[in-house]
Every structure is written in structure tokens, then in C-alpha cells.
Amino acid sequence: MMKPFGGNILFLDRSDINTDEIIPAKYLTEVTKQALAPYLLEDLKLDGFDPKGEALKTAQVIVTRENFGCGSSREHAPWALEVNGINLVIAQGFARIFRQNMFNCGMMALELPAADIDALFALSSQGTVSCDLDLPQRTLAVAVDGKPAQTLSFHIEPFDEALVCAGGWVYYANTHY
């Protein structure tokens, strides 16, 4: 079953946010996904960001820059996002393992060109920014304070789309192999 992709956007204006920042290693001894929930982005080094703040609490989408999710292979990073209701991360680029982990969980790691990412960041000062992703149409409808602001188109690899539609790699692989 496909997850919903859309909602309020949390803007993280930095490149190279690594998986240690998304979920520190000391929490990797947890054996359930739900136990990770309080610790999302706890060690993020970003001026003005509060891991306990409203912006994160009310977000269903993250928009960020280059090389998001670099470093450790820990799938705890997507899980920590998922248990906080964030199924969609939009970035200029992802680290390979993190991106694969997202799709393997039936979540969405959406890559957009730098100009589109810049346009989204430009909206961030104008109010509460939200978006809604339409997978079949390949469009991302962006709104500011609920009013339509912009519609972006995107590309997704067919395999990644198949994983999202299947609800993840285990479902897909168990049917196909």
C-alpha cells in the first residue's frame, strides 16, 4: 500500500546532512522503529534548528540541499523520519544507501534540480509552505499558507516507483524472486 506523500515542509538549509545527525548511533541499540521517534535530527548542526521545535513536530516533508543521508547505512534514518510522519524528503541529491533505504521502505526520496530547490527555499520566508505529490502525474504542487504557489515536475526511476507502489522492497522481492 502506498504511503501519503505531502504536507507541511521543514526546510533544512544545509548540504551533507549525515545519518549520524538524523539519528545518532547511540540509539541504534533500539530494536523497534517507534523507539527512535524522540531522537530524530537530535544532533543536526544547523543554526536556528530546534529538534524539539514546532517546525519539526508539524512537518510531513523535508526539503534540503546536496548529499542528504550520507555516511552510515543505518535504515534507522528513514525509520526515524517515518515514525515522525515524514515520508517524503526532497533534495538536490542523496547518498545512495539512504536513497535506496527510503524507496525500500516505500518512502520517497525525490531529487530536484538546484533551481527548483532554490525556488522552494525562496518560498520558505513567505509563510507556511506545504506540498502535495502526485506520482502518476509526476507533479509536486506547492502552496504557501494553503494558497497554490508553484507546481514542479519531477523524474523518478521506474524501479524506485515500483518499490513505492509495492510498499517497499520486501514485498516486491518476495513476489518476484
Binding site: 547505512s73 544507501i97 533505504n101 525500500n104 520486501v170 518476495n174
Partner: peptide, 9 residues
């Protein structure tokens, strides 16, 4: 290196 789902499969 892979995540837990790739490992599981």
C-alpha cells in the same frame, strides 16, 4: 553497504 531492508531481502 546496504540498509536493513536490502539485508533482509
Amino acid at each position: 553497504g546496504v540498509g536493513t531492508t536490502d539485508l533482509e531481502v
